[in-house]
Amino acid sequence: EFNDRNIRVSNGINEDHPVGNGIKAMQACLDEKSGGKLKLTAFWGGALGGDLQATQALRSGVQEAVVTSSSPLVGIIPALGVFDLPFLFASPEEAYQVLDGEFGDMMSQKLEEAGLVNLGYWENGFRNLSNSVRPVTKWEDFEGMKVRVMQNDIFLDTFQNLGANATPMAFGEVFSALETNAIDAQENPYVTIDTSKFYEVQKYVTETNHAYTPFLFLFSKAIFDTYTPEEQAALRECATVGRDEERKVIQDLNKKSLEKIKEAGLEVNVLSEEEQARIREKSMVVYEKHKATIGADVVDGILAKLEEIRK
């Protein structure tokens, strides 16, 4: 049984991001299942407010849905901080296995307790470092570099621990701050470096793969609970369809974005295996420091799961 529903989905990113493709695929799936009754209306570029603001609107039952990175939500659900831990996942496949499995369900449970129904883990991509000072090949190269980070404790500690001068700054100010050298560096997925044109004002890009912060497709629990079981099931299934499409598109786009960054004349390097291991080693203090806040069970749980996968 389906009713006419207008589902407003807030996005901080722009429509040309692969999430746009994911939402189209999800809508096609919903059209088929609901006979066109369940309609997604997406708002882009933070038109309905920032990610955190939109998430709070979901919790208070004011708005239906949001696609947001996990990082801004740690103030609501501290356990989500686990995804901010440096060098946690080694590959997208590893991330899929963890997120789409039991561990992901456990995190969804925690979200539900905060009034948020997680319809699935979409992809934001691994975060990489760009800067205008020097190629980063070892952790010593971070020394004194002014890196913009999100307003997030774990990112701050990660970069401070590496010797960088981590500066929290709103996303909207990053471009001009890089352009004017008020800061030297920023860290984001390739797609963001491309779509936000950071490559125009940076010289070096290092594939650090230092964090994989997933996108969450969140639905207001207060509103979700008023939907019929058929509607709920359709939303859950179609969110998965959208997720698969989005992951596929973003993988391709990542490659294209990297090409574009290279064509723009930036020097791109990949952190070597040994150096990656060395930095991970050095970053373990960050794990220790934040273990209590995130929850020891969560940190140990994901590390155990990863060890199991890596065997």
Partner: peptide
């Protein structure tokens, strides 16, 4: 008033001040 519970259950990312 209605929003107080969800703001009380959220802390600021850096200062940890309840919102």
């Amino acid at each position: 008033w209605k929003q107080a519970p969800i703001n009380a259950s959220m802390v600021a990312p850096v200062t940890k001040l309840p919102m």
